[in-house]
Design a protein around this nucleic acid. Structure first.
Lengths: 196, 196
DNA sequence: TAGCAAAACTAACACTTATTAGTTTTTTGG
DNA sequence: CCAAAAAACTAATAAGTGTTAGTTTTGCTA
């Protein structure tokens, strides 16, 4: 009866995907059922299959949308003439922005990717490893140029990526901290530390 | 036929719980089946119920074992006469140590807690919120004492906890980075930054 | 307004799930 | 070595899973 109404910008498939992201985030991919997803849309489960191929396709779309966004941002950052610390700052700010604006998708990509099916699982992991590797190379070049302290570049990248990824549990503190404060203080912490 | 053999230190229930942690980590709580858990132990699924109450009890045990370990470490850290930066360093090192030594359990506690049933879910979240709150207070006192830079204490705690939590994906780089390097560099990064 | 395509519906299938009941085997202790 | 307790087994249940088939309704366009 109820018809899937496409948002002003987006097909019906996009609407389903977005609702799926919220549901996968809340319940986890495995615990989220197609019947439940259909219910949040106001439709019976089999009707979804007029628009999508399978449940796991929804996960693929979400994960690769996020992965592609980060990859293409890194592409353009690498091409700027900024110093390494400036580039790192830009990357951190982009991660934080993604976390704040596309929280559902980013959360799902970070937490539910293991339920991707082959060959998507391998593709996703390769893409992520490639991203990390390029980030490590960026840090290495900054150390060589004397713009960064001598430290293990892997650990530095690990620390930065982990810190921004953890923003998911900032959602609970939204009332206490503004997005601007969060972004500035975290950038500062990760670049300059907190010890006096 | 095959009997559950208790490890030298631990009941049969402990053996099951430990294997469950590995399985929950690998497949996720919802995707992990009792049949599969039983198989890794070498027994039929219903036999497990001679030792445990339910699948979700296993998750409870794992999550609260981890939560209690962190809480009680914070208890003792608060009572030392160290400076605030020293206390923070101790906390970071404890987190890293837990990640390296009890990886399976910590991973599950961090990723699968949402599948806890009430009232355990609320208890767990309350315990975690309490931990964060006490950590924030510690940072606040360090700022007041002039031992830390003036920064938002929530953001600082968020950054530190997120960074150490992300150590889960260091497992893939084990060959490249020693545990000692990792620990020292991360502590240094989080306290002093990487920018020159 | 007739007809066609899109998209909804109901019914069903083939599986998997955690868990219980009832029974048999194994281990333990006197 | 025998009895009691512990722990394994098989069989079964009730609920829930993603998905397909077949049919009916809806909505656009000619």
């Amino acid at each position: 009866m109820a018809k899937i109404r496409p948002g002003k910008n987006g097909s019906k498939k996009d609407v389903i995907t977005q609702k799926a992201a919220v549901l996968f985030k809340t319940k986890g991919y495995s615990s989220a059922s197609m019947r439940e997803l259909a219910e949040t849309i106001g439709v019976e489960a089999p009707s979804l299959y007029n628009h999508i191929g399978s449940k796991s396709e929804l996960l693929q779309i979400i994960c690769f949308k996020v992965a592609d966004a980060f990859t293409s941002h890194l592409d353009s950052t690498e091409r700027t003439g900024e110093t390494v610390p400036e580039k790192i700052e830009a990357i951190i700010r982009f991660h934080i922005g993604m976390m704040l604006n596309d929280f559902d998708e980013v959360y799902v990509a970070n937490h539910e990717w293991k339920h991707l099916k082959e060959p998507y699982l391998s593709n996703f992991l390769n893409q992520r490893r490639g991203y990390e590797k390029r980030f490590v190379q960026l840090v290495e070049s900054g150390i060589e140029a004397g713009e960064l302290k001598k430290t293990d570049p892997y650990v530095a990248v690990l620390t930065i990526l982990s810190a921004v990824r953890g923003l998911e549990f900032w959602q609970h503190h939204k009332k206490n901290i503004s997005a601007a404060t969060l972004e500035d203080d975290m950038v500062n912490h990760l670049l300059n530390g907190i010890a006096k």
